[in-house]
């Protein structure tokens, strides 16, 4: 489904990704873990098409398509969804208006007519319940005045509305208390299915107690230094990143 080969990316002159290789099959959940500054969020952003990052080498294919040739919105149309680490506040645009615009853009691309108002409302009601998101927030400007937890739940809610083929969660757990974490994880788990894959970028092992991954990758200094199954996360918890880095023989990140 997703094939990342020797991916190098930088912002300005600062090289961040230094040769990522990763293959994800349909239905799989991959967790990317790593210390601060290792490139986890960059990988998520590059996959979603953030133009602040320049890809200098390597390739990404998604269901046979060259992702690097696609604009951010075209990637969304292909079924790639990024749940932002820091969801953006957009004053003046109501959440429901934006969602409808986004869904209709997706539908248009698939040759479908615009969504009926009643169908849209039903979907909103159903999916917002999934993440216990107060649907009165739909009338408010996007993420404006939302609490940290509401912002993150709003991301998972939007993912549920869009029904992507690949969901990328960029530190969706950071800043959440345990109850909110459970709600978010529960929402993601409900979306899991044989045709939908996930990349779960996280700093903390804790999230993986609730979203159990098929694979865990440890990212250090722009490279995946170790991959394994869910037990790798527990090992990380015990040994810390330093331990894993020492074992893998990877270079310590400098400064």
């Amino acid at each position: 489904m997703l094939e990342i080969t020797n991916l190098h990316a930088q912002i300005g002159d600062h090289k961040i990704l230094k040769g990522i290789n990763l293959t994800i099959n349909p239905g799989e959940v991959h967790s990317i873990m790593g210390p601060n500054g290792s490139g986890k969020s960059t990988l998520a952003s590059v996959l979603a098409g953030n133009e602040n990052f320049e890809v200098t080498e390597g390739s990404i294919t998604f269901n046979g398509k060259d992702v690097l040739e696609l604009a951010a919105e075209e990637r969304a149309w292909e079924g790639i969804f990024l749940a932002f680490q820091y969801p953006v506040e957009i004053p003046g645009v109501s959440t429901s208006y934006f969602l409808k615009a986004a869904m209709n853009a997706m539908r248009k691309n698939k040759g479908l007519p615009e969504i009926e108002a009643a169908e849209f409302l039903k979907l909103v009601e159903q999916k917002s319940k999934m993440v216990a998101l107060d649907d009165r927030l739909m009338g408010r400007a996007i993420n404006e005045g939302f609490s940290g937890g509401e912002k993150k739940r709003n991301e998972v809610f939007q993912m549920a509305m869009m029904e992507p083929k690949l969901g990328i969660l960029d530190e969706t757990d950071s800043g959440l208390d345990i109850d909110a974490l459970k709600i978010v994880a529960n929402g993601v788990n409900k979306l899991r299915g044989p045709d939908r894959s996930f990349i779960v970028v996280t700093h903390y092992q804790r999230l993986l107690d609730y979203i159990v991954p098929d694979y865990v990758h440890v990212l250090v200094d722009g490279r995946i230094v170790k991959s394994g199954d869910k037990t790798l996360a527990l090992e990380l918890e015990k040994k810390g990143y330093a331990g894993i880095i020492a074992e893998s023989g990877a270079a310590q990140p400098v400064g």
Binding site: E73, R75, W77, F81, A102, N109
Partner: peptide, 21 residues
């Protein structure tokens, strides 16, 4: 970028933000 990542085209995203303003 946030809007585009949800499938809204770059032109529409710009317009939407100007509209919102």
């Amino acid at each position: 970028f946030y809007l585009r990542s949800r499938g809204v085209s770059v032109d529409a995203a710009r317009s939407l933000l100007i509209y919102a303003f």
